[in-house]
C-alpha cells in the first residue's frame, strides 16, 4: 500500500485530502491527514465575532465532519518532519512514513515577538486572529464607550492582509449603530506605505477611510507596546497613543517547521512559487499560508493552489510531465 500523508487539516489540507481521495484507488493508496486538534474554525468569521454578527456555532465545527470517508484522520501534534527519511513524527501517535507528502500547516500569531505585547494582551490590547481572542475583544468592545481605538498591524506578512481594514470599517459601523461614533477616534497604523499593498486598491480604500473618518498612519514598523502609558512605539521612535489597541501580532509558520530545519526563521517553507515544491523534493508539495511565496495568505489562494497540486501530483504518480503552474491568484 502506498502512502499519502497530509499535514494540517485546516483549509488547504482538507481540500487536498478530499480531492486526492477522489482520484486515488483505495486498494492502492492510503491517505492520512494529521492535525493537532479537531476544531475547524472558519477564520474569515473571526472578523464578525467581536461585533456579534457570527456566533461560535456558525464558525466553529469539527475537522472530522469535512474529511471524506476513506481518509484516516490522526489528531496529534506534529513534532518533526524529515524529508530525507520520508517520515513525520507526532507527539502521541508515533511516526508516519510517506510516498507523497502534502503540507498545509498554516501560520499563527506570535505576541511574544513584540516587546510588551504579550504582557499587555487582554488588558488594553486585544486581537481577533484566534477564536479566543475574538471573545475577549467582543467583551472589551461592549464596554468601550469612547476614546481612541487604534488598529495596528505589527509587520507583514499576515494572513488575509485586508482583514485589518475590514475590522476598521466594521468598528466604524459598530460605533455608529451604538450612537457613539462621535466619541470614538479610529486610527489605522500600518507598516505598509498606504491603506493596502496594491495601488488601485490603496486609492479606493484610502478614500473609504477618509469618508469614514478613519486616520491612516503608514510606514509604522512596530517596535514595542507600552501598556502602562498606552502607546505603541515604532522602531524609529514615533509614538501613537491609544485607549484600546486591536493588534495583529507577527504571523509565523508552524514551529515544527523551524524545529525540523526545513523553513526560514519565520517558519515559512521555501518553495518554488510556481510548482509549490521545495528544492530537490519531487514528492513534497506545500500550499496555503505556510509557504514563503509572495502572494496573499488567504484561503482563496490555497483553493487555487490546491487545483495546481491536484493536477501535478496526479501527473507525478502517473509518471507524466507536470504542467500546472501557480500564479498566486485569489480570485
Amino acid at each position: 500500500m502506498k502512502k499519502l500523508v497530509i499535514l494540517g487539516a485546516g483549509c488547504g489540507g482538507t481540500m487536498m485530502a478530499n480531492k486526492m481521495r477522489r482520484h486515488l484507488d483505495r486498494d492502492e493508496w492510503n491517505i492520512t491527514i494529521i492535525d493537532k486538534d479537531n476544531i475547524h474554525d472558519y477564520q474569515p468569521g473571526y472578523l464578525f465575532v467581536p461585533f456579534g454578527i457570527n456566533t461560535e456555532k456558525e464558525i466553529r465545527k469539527t475537522k472530522r465532519e469535512f474529511i471524506k470517508p476513506g481518509i484516516d484522520f490522526v489528531v496529534s501534534e506534529l513534532v518533526n518532519v524529515d524529508w530525507d527519511k520520508q517520515e513525520v513524527a507526532t507527539s502521541t501517535r508515533g511516526k508516519y512514513q510517506y510516498d507523497i507528502l502534502i503540507m498545509s500547516t498554516g501560520c499563527d500569531t506570535r505576541t511574544e515577538e513584540v516587546e510588551g505585547l504579550a504582557e499587555t494582551w487582554g488588558k488594553n490590547v486585544y486581537g481577533y486572529y484566534r477564536y479566543d481572542d475574538c471573545i475577549g475583544l467582543k467583551k472589551a468592545l461592549a464596554g468601550f464607550t469612547g476614546g481612541k481605538l487604534v488598529i495596528n498591524v505589527a509587520e507583514m506578512p499576515i494572513k488575509c492582509p485586508v482583514a485589518p481594514l475590514e475590522f476598521a470599517f466594521l468598528a466604524d459601523w459598530h460605533f455608529h449603530e451604538r450612537g457613539i461614533r462621535d466619541k470614538v477616534e479610529i486610527e489605522f497604523v500600518t507598516p505598509l506605505t498606504g491603506a493596502f499593498t496594491k495601488p488601485v486598491a490603496t486609492q479606493v480604500l484610502t478614500a473609504a477611510c477618509e469618508q469614514k473618518n478613519i486616520k491612516i498612519t503608514p510606514n509604522f514598523a512596530l517596535g514595542a507596546v507600552d501598556g502602562e502609558r498606552k502607546v505603541i512605539q515604532s522602531y524609529d521612535g514615533i509614538e501613537v497613543n491609544y485607549d484600546m489597541l486591536v493588534s495583529i501580532p507577527p504571523n509565523f509558520g508552524s514551529q515544527v517547521m523551524i524545529d525540523s530545519g526545513i523553513s526560514d526563521p519565520m517558519g515559512y517553507i521555501p518553495v518554488d512559487k510556481h510548482t509549490l515544491q521545495p528544492k530537490d523534493r519531487p514528492n513534497v508539495w506545500v500550499l496555503g499560508d505556510g509557504t514563503n511565496v509572495p502572494t496573499s495568505k488567504a484561503g482563496a489562494v490555497a483553493h487555487f493552489q490546491a487545483d495546481i497540486l491536484e493536477e501535478n501530483i496526479m501527473a507525478f504518480i502517473n509518471g507524466e510531465a507536470q504542467h500546472a503552474r501557480s500564479d498566486g491568484h485569489a480570485l
Binding site: M15, N18, K19, Y42, G299, H303
Partner: peptide
C-alpha cells in the same frame, strides 16, 4: 461556499 464547496475540494 467555504463549508460546502471549497473544503469538499
Amino acid at each position: 461556499a467555504y463549508y460546502n464547496l471549497l473544503l469538499a475540494g
